[in-house]
């Protein structure tokens, strides 16, 4: 009976949590995985959340769930690469999920960032997280996230200004480097 009560309580808490993070997690995964893999990754993420229900921090539940999803993503990508190797490489390498958008300038600028800086930018712009929350997701310190976020934003602005100088009058050219392109 004791177990039953505890189980009911856990279900209750989990249902409440799931109702809140179900949509953001699907978006997070959908942004980073092919559509046909999202459900599997979502299910794996929910399972970790369920198993670790007592570990979920009350003040950072959603970022914590994103960090679990992030780990799940890494596992799925590894599995995806193994599948590709086995299926005789239909493509030379896995293509990015979303490789073309209607903003080629921004695409190019984002492509020039390191993987981890690009992810910080995505978490900031797409998941709408602040540096403290991004720190929970990535395992970096809040300070490190803030610095990298500032640096990455500057790099994007500069790269877009380089591509389209006419539209970038408001960006001060703080760099003394010559344009080499």
């Amino acid at each position: 009976m004791e177990h039953g009560t505890s189980d009911t309580h856990a279900r209750y808490r989990f249902e409440m949590l799931a109702a809140d993070v179900f949509d953001p997690l699907q978006r997070y995964l959908g942004r980073r995985l092919p559509a046909d893999q999202v459900d599997d990754a979502l299910s794996d993420t929910l399972l970790v959340m369920w198993r670790r229900l007592d570990d979920i921090p009350r003040d950072a539940a959603l970022p914590w769930c994103y960090s679990v999803a992030r780990q799940t993503l890494a596992n799925h990508r590894r599995a995806g690469r193994r599948r590709l190797a086995l299926t005789d490489k239909l493509r030379a390498q896995p293509r990015p999920v979303h490789d073309e958008t209607e903003d080629p300038e921004l695409d190019t600028a984002l492509a020039k960032l390191s993987d981890s800086d690009r992810e910080i930018i995505r978490l900031w712009a797409w998941e709408q997280l602040d540096p403290r929350e991004i720190a929970v997701v990535t395992g970096l310190t809040t300070n490190a996230v803030s610095l990298r976020l500032t640096r990455a934003k500057k790099k994007i602005e500069e790269e877009m200004a380089r591509q389209n100088p006419a539209r970038a009058g408001h960006i001060r050219n703080e760099s003394t480097q010559e344009h080499t392109e």
């Binding site: 179900f22 949509d23 903003d103 900031w124 712009a125």
Partner: peptide, 24 residues
């Protein structure tokens, strides 16, 4: 400037608010 950039990046979000997701 930061908000402008954030909005511009949001416009290329493949899972923006107009994309539907499944409910619990």
């Amino acid at each position: 400037m930061s908000d402008e950039l954030r909005n511009r990046i949001r416009r290329i979000d493949p899972m923006g608010p107009d994309v539907e997701t499944r409910s619990v």
